[in-house]
Structure formats: structure tokens, C-alpha cells
């Protein structure tokens, strides 16, 4: 029996209408609240990236799911159907093939270009290695903070303020910060979630990541690389504070850590500290 139902037109109409509605909901309602939030320029950039990715993938996912659902419902076996009867064989459709290739190729190429541009724009908060392609802000006004990972705590050095080291991370608001991430032992990963910063901490490597802060806020810091028995406990918190508050905090920290500052190894981008192996 010939089936004259316009299945393709029905499915296409269903897909177009539901895509418009659901994509609008995703882009304008769900996406703005997605992690990591809008605390920094890089975090906001990641929200935009996630919005674009989710906005483009919504119609694609809908197309697949609708087609599956439509087939399961419309082409299901009904009582009285011959269970051995199969539909007509599909021998190819050059028009569908051409459009499939055009649409998917365009989508993939667009996303590749979009991702590359977003990465080059401001580093996207990721570790760029010792020679970053994307240098953010004016180097003269950039705050440098060295993140030193060790089993199992992050410590921080401020080379522009005498190289003091502290176990607390504070950075000023409305400032470009250049994180120099390294490790003294195994591989760790510095993940300042709400800042939108994530950079691997490798021993002997200077991994640079940028962030442009906005208003004061608190943020969490986690190690994102399995690094030993206390990896799950390797977390702390940090603060973005007003510039005046940052200045007084630096003064207070320099004073508090003055007994040990002169004992520290002179500031370098990487360290290979002794002892490498215990003598005993």
C-alpha cells in the first residue's frame, strides 16, 4: 500500500518550530546563567562560548531526537501488520546528501573559526605555556602572580612586591592578572573556577594564563589533576578586592611573611628545588 503522507514535510515543520522555540529558551533563558558566571572578562567569554555552542547544538540534537521519536511512533509495527514486511529500500538522495554535507561542513568550519578567534582574543583563561600567543592587557599595568603547586597546597608569589610568598590569593578588581603557574613536584592543575582560569601546573614549566577582573568577588581554587593521596583536599579560596584594599593587604602580607621572605629562593619562573631525594 502506497503511503502518501508527507512525512518529511511534517518532520521538517516540527523541527523548525521546536528548534526556534527551544533555541530561544536555551540562548536567552538557560545560557546566561551557565558556569563559570560573569565575574571576569574571561569567565564572561566562556559563558558566550557555551551559549554559542549550546545554541548551535540545540537544533542538531533536536533533529536527531525528533527523527528518532517520529520513526518510533509513526513507523511502529501495528496489530495486523506483516512482521516480515520491510519498507522500500533507500537508494540515495543527492539533494539530501548535498545539503547534509553543506550544513555540517559549514557548522564545523564556523565552530573551528569561532573557537580559534575566541582563544586568540584573550586566552580564554587557559594556560598558554611560557610564550603565550594571546598577550592580554598592557604589560606595564599587569599584576603578575606566581602560582606554586605542591603536594598538596597552592602557594602564591608576588614578584612585583618583593617576591613575598603567601598561602592566600588576593587580586585587585578591574585589573589584568598574569598567572605564572608551575609545580614543585608532580603535575597539578590550577583551577580558579569563578575566574574562568584553568592552567596545568607542571614541574619545570612556566604556564601563563591571563584574567581580567571586574568587581570584587570570592572564588574557589581547586586542583584539577589527580596528584596524590590528598588531591581531594587540595583546594582553597581567593578574593578579588578593591585596589586600595589590595594595597593594604600586600603591605600586611609582606610584614607578616618578612621572616621567611629572605629565606626564599630568588624569584624565578620555574624551580628545581633540592632535595630531589631524601638522603636517609
Amino acid at each position: 500500500m502506497q503511503d502518501n503522507t508527507p512525512h518529511f514535510r511534517r518532520l521538517a515543520l516540527l523541527w523548525v518550530v521546536s528548534s526556534i522555540v527551544l533555541t530561544a529558551i536555551v540562548v536567552f533563558v538557560l545560557a546566561p546563567g551557565m558556569p563559570p558566571g560573569n565575574g571576569t572578562v574571561q569567565a564572561s567569554g566562556q559563558v558566550v562560548d557555551n551559549t554559542v555552542l549550546l545554541g548551535l547544538s540545540t537544533p542538531v540534537a533536536l533533529g536527531v531526537l525528533l527523527c528518532l521519536g517520529y520513526c518510533l511512533i509513526v513507523f511502529r509495527e501495528r496489530p495486523g501488520d506483516d512482521p516480515h514486511l520491510e519498507g522500500p529500500a533507500i537508494r540515495g538522495n543527492s539533494s539530501i546528501q548535498m545539503w547534509w554535507l553543506v550544513v555540517t561542513t559549514t557548522l564545523v568550519l564556523f565552530l573551528a573559526a569561532f573557537g580559534s578567534i575566541e582563544l586568540l582574543k584573550d586566552g580564554a583563561g587557559g594556560g598558554q605555556g611560557p610564550n603565550p600567543l594571546s598577550v592580554v592587557g598592557n604589560p606595564k599595568s599587569t599584576l603578575q602572580v606566581q602560582v606554586i603547586a605542591q603536594q598538596w597546597q597552592f602557594t602564591y608569589r608576588y614578584p612585583q612586591y618583593g617576591g613575598f610568598e603567601t598561602n592566600k590569593l588576593e587580586i585587585p578588581a578591574n585589573t589584568t592578572v598574569e598567572f605564572h603557574v608551575t609545580s614543585l613536584d608532580v603535575i597539578h592543575s590550577f583551577w580558579a573556577y569563578q575566574l574562568g582560569v584553568k592552567a596545568d601546573a607542571n614541574p619545570g614549566q612556566d604556564n601563563i594564563a591571563y584574567v581580567q577582573t571586574k568587581a570584587p568577588m570570592n572564588f574557589a581554587v581547586h586542583c584539577a589533576e589527580l596528584c596524590g593521596v590528598w588531591h581531594g583536599y587540595m583546594f582553597d579560596s581567593g578574593k578579588v578586592v578593591p585596589k586600595t584594599e589590595f594595597a593594604s593587604w600586600v603591605t600586611q602580607q609582606r610584614k607578616y611573611f618578612s621572616p621567611e621572605t629572605h629565606l626564599l629562593t630568588p624569584y624565578r619562573h620555574t624551580y628545581f628545588p633540592a632535595p630531589q631525594r631524601r638522603g636517609g
Binding site: 606554586i148 610568598e165 598561602n167
Partner: peptide, 20 residues
Amino acid sequence: DSATGLRNEFFSQAIGTTGG
């Protein structure tokens, strides 16, 4: 125990104790 030495000299100072 005898001394081994610190890999990070930061820990050569006491922090967080009463009186510092």
C-alpha cells in the same frame, strides 16, 4: 628525626599559630 630540608622554603616560617 634528622633534617631533610624543605623543597619550598615558604614552610620554614610558622603561620597560623597563636602569636605567630
